[in-house]
C-alpha cells in the first residue's frame, strides 16, 4: 500500500506542477530583460532588485537579429529589450515598440544631447540610449610589430590564421564597403557583388568568428588581431596595454544600443522604473566599470576615473564624423545573410 500511495503522490505532484504553471501567472514584481551578452552587470540587476523588489530575468543574445528572431517567433514575452540603432529603426517602422513615457524618467536629463534625436528615432519617442560604441581593430602589439591602420592591414596575407572577427554579417559587409570607398548603408546588388570577392579573401584568413566574446581568443593567445566591439577592446586594454585599439582608416561607424519596450510587454511600469534606474549617474558608472563602452550619460562620465576616460577604446579620439547604421529593409538584410552563408561555406 505504501508504494501505491507513493505513486499516487507522484502523480498528484505532476498534476499540480503542470496546472500550477499552465495558468499564466500575473506576477507584479518581475522584469523580463532581453539584452546583449556581456552588457548589463549583475551588480546593477541585484541593486535594482534590492531597491524595488522587482525580480529581473536577464536573457542574452549576441546580435540584433537574434533578438528580433526570438521576439518574432512569438511565445516569449519580454518587457525591455536592447536593440542596436538600426534594428530599433526597423522595429519603430514596423510598430513593434511602445512609446516611452518620458515623464516617468526623472534622470533623463543626464543624457548627453549629442546622442539624442539621432536618425533612427529622431524624436526620441521609443528609445533611450544605453551605451554607445565603435567597431574597430585591436592588435596585440607584442606579436604584431608592423603598424595596423585599417582593414587592408588587418586582413593582410601575413596575418592569415591570426584574426578574430565579429560573427555578424552586417558588420563584416560594412567593413568591405569601407575598403571599396562606398557608402556603408548602400547594399545595392551592385555593391553586394563588389564586396563579395573582398570578403571571400578575408574569410580565408579569419581564424575565428565570435560576437559574444571576441576578447577571449585574443587573451588566450589563439589570435593576435581582431575586428571587435570597442568595449571588448577596452577590456583588453584594461587587462594589458599591449592590446591597442585602432579606428580603421578606411572608415568607422558608431553604434548606439538603446533601451526599448516591445509591444507585447507585460510589465511596462517596471521597464520604466528600470530605465530610470539605469540613467542614474552612479548606476551608469557601474556599467562603465564592467563594460567600458562610451557612456552617453553625461553625469555618469563625471564620475569616471581619469584612467577610464583615457581608455582609447572607450573614448577614441575621433577626428571625423562617425557614420551610423540605418535600417536596410528586409530584402537587403536577407541578401547579406545569404552572401555570408555562401562565403563561409565556399571552401
Amino acid at each position: 500500500m505504501k508504494k501505491l500511495r507513493h505513486l499516487i503522490l507522484l502523480g498528484l505532484a505532476a498534476l499540480c506542477a503542470t496546472t500550477a504553471f499552465a495558468a499564466p501567472k500575473k506576477k507584479k514584481g518581475e522584469l523580463n530583460l532581453f539584452a546583449w551578452s556581456e552588457y548589463v552587470p549583475q551588480a546593477v540587476l541585484d541593486g535594482f532588485t534590492e531597491e524595488t523588489g522587482i525580480k529581473v530575468n536577464y536573457e542574452t543574445y549576441a546580435s540584433g537579429e537574434e533578438m528580433l528572431a526570438k521576439l518574432q517567433a512569438g511565445g516569449a514575452r519580454y518587457d525591455l529589450i536592447q536593440p542596436p540603432d538600426y534594428v530599433a529603426e526597423a522595429m519603430i517602422k514596423n510598430d513593434l515598440l511602445v512609446p516611452i513615457q518620458r515623464e516617468k524618467l526623472t534622470n533623463y536629463g543626464n543624457l548627453l544631447p549629442e546622442y539624442l534625436g539621432m536618425p533612427h528615432d529622431p524624436e526620441q519617442r521609443y528609445t533611450v540610449p544605453y551605451m554607445v560604441g565603435t567597431v574597430g581593430i585591436v592588435v596585440n602589439t607584442e606579436r604584431v610589430k608592423d603598424p595596423v591602420l585599417g582593414y587592408a592591414d588587418l586582413f593582410a596575407e601575413k596575418h592569415a590564421g591570426r584574426i578574430v572577427v565579429l560573427d555578424d554579417g552586417r558588420e563584416l559587409a560594412t567593413a568591405a564597403l569601407y575598403t571599396l570607398g562606398k557608402n556603408l548603408n548602400d547594399f545595392s546588388d551592385e555593391n553586394l557583388a563588389a564586396v563579395k570577392p573582398v570578403l571571400a579573401t578575408w574569410f580565408k584568413r579569419v581564424k575565428l568568428f565570435d560576437s559574444d566574446s571576441p576578447k577571449t581568443a585574443l587573451l588566450n593567445g589563439d589570435v593576435d588581431l581582431g575586428l571587435v566591439w570597442g568595449g571588448e577592446a577596452a577590456l583588453l586594454w584594461k587587462e594589458d596595454k599591449k592590446f591597442q585599439y585602432v579606428l580603421p582608416a578606411e572608415g568607422a561607424h558608431m553604434f548606439v544600443d538603446l533601451l526599448g519596450i516591445p509591444k507585447r510587454a507585460k510589465n511596462v511600469e517596471n521597464a520604466h522604473l528600470f530605465i530610470d534606474y539605469i540613467l542614474r549617474p552612479e548606476v551608469s558608472k557601474l556599467i562603465s566599470d564592467d563594460f567600458p563602452y562610451t557612456n552617453p550619460n553625461g553625469a555618469a562620465r563625471k564620475l569616471l576615473s581619469a584612467d577610464q576616460l583615457a581608455n582609447p577604446a572607450s573614448y577614441p579620439k575621433v577626428d571625423r564624423k562617425l557614420d551610423t547604421f540605418r535600417d536596410l529593409g528586409d530584402a537587403a538584410a536577407a541578401k547579406i545573410d545569404e552572401l555570408i552563408t555562401d562565403l563561409k561555406n565556399a571552401r
Partner: peptide, 22 residues
C-alpha cells in the same frame, strides 16, 4: 527554444556565461 525568460534553466544560464569566456 521553449523557455520563457522567467523559466530559464541552469544549462541555459551556464551556456550564456560560458559563451563569454571561461
Amino acid at each position: 527554444f521553449t523557455a520563457s525568460p522567467d523559466a530559464r534553466t541552469l544549462p541555459m544560464q551556464v551556456f550564456g556565461m560560458a559563451k563569454v569566456g571561461l
